[in-house]
């Protein structure tokens, strides 16, 4: 009986998630009347807007990842090494982006960095891009910090640092040759999560008026029928590919027990 209930729960859960996806996929394949076809995908792929916005978001994601890694890895390392008692505070700060809606953050940005502010970032395209990248980094912060912090906890940071120092190493070398490689799989999983977030992000990009993939999906969704479904499937595929990559890299590192 309990076994039956368990299976029933699993199956209804799966249906709950799978039905819309199956429906959407089916719909995205039905552009040509009567037969399944990839027409909707063809149209989407051929759209120069698609290519441009997707490329833009991809580049933004890469910049966000680089910035996030440079910000989070040294911070998490330092907190763990020098002020372990501050860890709950830092953890709380990194979780704030989950609580504060993106729209609030971006309005704050616009108020603070508008053309009459003290740092008019929104006055230029580069400045706005930079601002958007900071915004993305904020959104990804909880995931990135968690991943890296967990990675750091699995090694004895303090003793390894002292061992390296006794051998003459300075901070930069310790970060680059010991800390980063040892948390690489954690960093990569944080990176893929960041990628997934940035590719799908709408609010910040729209309000800062940047040609990102999120707003493009929204515009397309408002004006077309089959193409948005195809786009959603593509976005899903990307997200799932990222998840798969996380799994792969965490299994690939040579120096860990299999």
């Amino acid at each position: 009986m309990t076994r039956f209930a368990a299976w029933a729960a699993i199956i209804s859960g799966c249906l709950y998630f799978l039905m819309p996806m199956i429906g959407m996929t089916e719909f995205s394949l039905s552009m040509r009347r009567g037969v399944y076809s990839l027409d909707a995908y063809r149209v989407v792929m051929a759209d120069p807007q698609f290519q441009a916005t997707f490329a833009y978001s991809l580049i933004m994601a890469l910049l966000t990842i680089v910035f996030g890694v440079l910000l989070v890895v040294p911070t998490a390392y330092w907190v763990q090494l020098k002020m372990p008692r501050m860890r709950p505070v830092v953890e709380f700060v990194t979780l704030l982006p989950l609580v504060i809606p993106a729209i609030v953050v971006v309005f704050g940005y616009i108020r603070l960095y508008n053309t009459s502010g003290w740092l008019p970032l929104t006055g230029s395209v580069t400045g706005t891009n930079l601002l958007l990248m900071f915004g993305y980094a904020t959104l990804a912060l909880p995931y990135m910090y968690r991943a890296v912090d967990t990675g750091l906890r699995s090694i004895d940071v303090a003793t390894l640092t002292e061992a390296a120092q006794s051998l003459g190493a300075g901070w930069f070398r310790i970060m680059a040759t010991l800390i980063l490689p040892n948390v690489l799989s954690a960093v990569l999983s944080g990176a893929f999560l960041t990628l997934a977030i940035v590719i799908g992000e709408f609010t910040m990009a729209a309000l800062l008026d940047r040609p990102a993939f999120g707003p493009y999906m929204q515009i397309l969704g408002a004006n077309r029928a089959y193409e948005p479904a195809a786009l959603a499937v593509i976005a899903f595929a990307i997200t799932w590919a990222c998840m798969g990559l996380i799994q792969m890299v965490s299994r690939l590192s040579k120096h860990k027990r299999a």
Binding site: T159, E162, Q165, S166, G168, N182
Partner: peptide, 21 residues
């Protein structure tokens, strides 16, 4: 002097080998 300038060798109870090397 900082420890990386003292020319000392240190061996720890927990070995502290660099796991990625």
């Amino acid at each position: 002097l900082k420890s990386n300038q003292r020319k000392i060798g240190m061996v720890f109870q927990s070995y502290a080998l660099f796991p990625n090397l």
